[in-house]
């Protein structure tokens, strides 16, 4: 099987897995499907000539972020009752509206893509862009972006810390407002 075939296979897996994510009743199952979808996409990245991104997808996304999800789900302690209720919500009517809307959107997108005369790519071979190329660019012209990204993560950290930490106890003497 050539690499083109591989791409289609992994793309289909990604689609199928994503579809399963949104139709699952059980959160843990859904998470597993999400990880499958991410891994399949990592393969797609690799086949598109982006091995570094593929590695990051597995390490950071499927690894770190998903662990966060799993951890949270464990904390929620979802029980059988939740799952049953969840299955009640999953009636076909609730899918109808969004699916119809999105189908229209999709048809539009397909039309747009098909109307494109020719993509300007001339190469017949996938060019590999390795970690070195990415790295030297990232810490060259994009240096400031890295710095901002660190502040973004800091914001996530501070915000997440504040939201998730235990609620404070009420102080004994409340402030008295003067009229």
């Amino acid at each position: 099987m050539n690499s083109l075939g591989l791409f289609y296979v992994s793309a289909s897996i990604a689609l199928l897995a994503s579809f399963c994510v949104i139709t699952q009743k059980n959160a843990v199952h859904a998470l597993l499907y999400l990880i499958v979808s991410l891994l399949a996409l990592a393969l797609c990245f690799y086949l598109l000539g982006a091995p570094f991104a593929a590695a990051l997808q597995i390490i950071v996304y499927a690894g770190a972020i998903m662990v966060l999800f799993v951890f949270a789900v464990m904390m929620f302690n979802i029980n059988q009752q939740d799952i049953e209720r969840e299955s009640q919500w999953l009636s076909w009517q609730s899918w109808l509206g969004p699916s119809l809307l999105v189908t229209v959107l999709l048809v539009e997108v397909l039309f747009i893509l098909q109307s494109q005369p020719a993509w300007t790519s001339t190469e017949s071979q996938v060019t590999l862009i390795d970690a070195k190329a990415v790295g030297s660019l990232l810490f060259g012209p994009y240096l400031l972006a890295v710095e901002i990204a660190s502040f973004l993560l800091l914001a996530g950290l501070v915000g997440g810390y504040h939201l998730a930490k235990a609620l404070p106890h009420k102080p004994v003497n409340k402030e008295v407002n003067q009229p």
């Binding site: 570094f52 997808q57 949270a72 929620f76 990232l138 994009y142 973004l152 993560l153 915000g159 810390y161």
Partner: peptide, 26 residues
Amino acid sequence: ADGQIIYILIITVAAAEVGLGLALLI
């Protein structure tokens, strides 16, 4: 390589969003 760089930035954004989202959820 720019495409991959934006990719890296996007997963940073996603990580921060998930972190906040899960904290809110808790």
